[in-house]
Design a protein around this nucleic acid. Sequence first.
DNA 1: CGGGAGCTTGAGGAGGATCAAATCATGTGG
DNA 2: CCACATGATTTGATCCTCCTCAAGCTCCCG
Lengths: 258, 258
Amino acid sequence: MPEPRVPGPTFVATTIPTMRTKQSQSSCPDSTACDACSVRELALFADLTRAELGSNPSIQDLRLSPGACLYRAGDTGAAIYTVREGLLKLEQYLPDGTSRIVSLLGPGQVAGLEVTVAAVYEHAAVALQPTWVCRLPTEIVARLSGKLHRQLMKKWHEAVLQAHDCTRELATGSARQRVARLFLMLASRDAASSNTAQSAHGRCRLFGREDIGALLGVTTETASRVVAQFRRMGTVQELGPNSFTCDLEALEQIATEV
Amino acid sequence: MPEPRVPGPTFVATTIPTMRTKQSQSSCPDSTACDACSVRELALFADLTRAELGSNPSIQDLRLSPGACLYRAGDTGAAIYTVREGLLKLEQYLPDGTSRIVSLLGPGQVAGLEVTVAAVYEHAAVALQPTWVCRLPTEIVARLSGKLHRQLMKKWHEAVLQAHDCTRELATGSARQRVARLFLMLASRDAASSNTAQSAHGRCRLFGREDIGALLGVTTETASRVVAQFRRMGTVQELGPNSFTCDLEALEQIATEV
DNA sequence: CGGGAGCTTGAGGAGGATCAAATCATGTGG
DNA sequence: CCACATGATTTGATCCTCCTCAAGCTCCCG
């Protein structure tokens, strides 16, 4: 498969004045957009023919800038969202008011699945990178449920796998190990879009230290310290802002050390 | 609803010589067993009439002693299991060979859902308490899938909620907080079977310190120390072996302290 | 009675949290 | 274009939690 590149609208580099606010630009795709979608085979509609799909106007493409919020915990669930490109965090709140990231969603994964069986969203979904999602209203899901069942089950499965991965890989061991595993996880995600699969160095986009902390269950300072240490050791190299190349072997080493 | 009590066979208090081994005693229920099942309304068959259900001989009740293994990661997935009473842990392994508990499953929840869309199990499922499960072969699920869809989706939802709960409540904060939240979680589970819902003291069954450690992401010693400390402080009282009453307010206090 | 497994407790040290401050990046207004 | 405000990142110093290693302890079973 060719390198996925999102067609859609031209990249709108609008600056968002207020972060953490819902910021979404809809672009009504032409009738073949779903065909052309880079995550077509991953997406919910994999089993549908184009005729069944039609050019449904209620299916929208949305673009999220980093920090933009797709929905919040407790919002009435009106739609589910397939990630086409980018990265979302699912965030929940602790008894003491602080928040914790319980899952990450990348291309092909679905946010908000819970509203197919419940009334409201369980988490806040917030973009960590520039992200495109495909919005699918719950009515459509209900209407097509006969056709979508198999795909929905697979998406549920992915959601569980992802949640368990986060506990197992990112909430266990020392801060060094967790950060190393995070780099490996992100690099393997981005590897899917890179043509050379098996090289000793990977590439990934990181995000803010505060989010890293909330994901790994450590403080912002610790997250910063470890990333800085990796950079000094040459384990990772910063190309641009939060864009890294990683020495995968060295990271693997750290991830599994005593 | 009345207090759930498992009918089934008489309690067989066999001692298991080799722990960690599959230990299951099947008892073919009479034709009305599914009707009488304590988790009937929670279970997969909630939507089925008795006629549809029939007295299917391939649906079995199994009893697991603590430490007994229902299936292992990588096993071919032949069935899914509804927990009727007791508690299961879902265990996965880290790169370094140590294991981590990624989820707990109690009455009404389903283990092994993943094999409805994949070939093998993702985790090992091991009993933490004396546990009864209802075994449902995947063929049956496939055959009844039209009828079962809604319930399956709900079970997937529960699985995701449970996984996120474990990350958020049990893998965050100090060891004291984690243990306090574990007590609260277990007490609220057992509260469902107790008639008095709103008292300041709860009741719960705990399990081995090693499992507590693997669940909370701390060492066995730390788990032991904190439990011992709670006991000395009177926050919890040990009635029998691993059977506790808890001061819910005090635990809540600890769970949310800075 | 002896042995083993799980639980408890102790002492010491490493790692991470906390508090605080300096540096850097970015956008704003003069 | 520059000075400044703002927020994120980095770094430092100190304290406390939890891990590590080690030793007793309790209970159960042969």
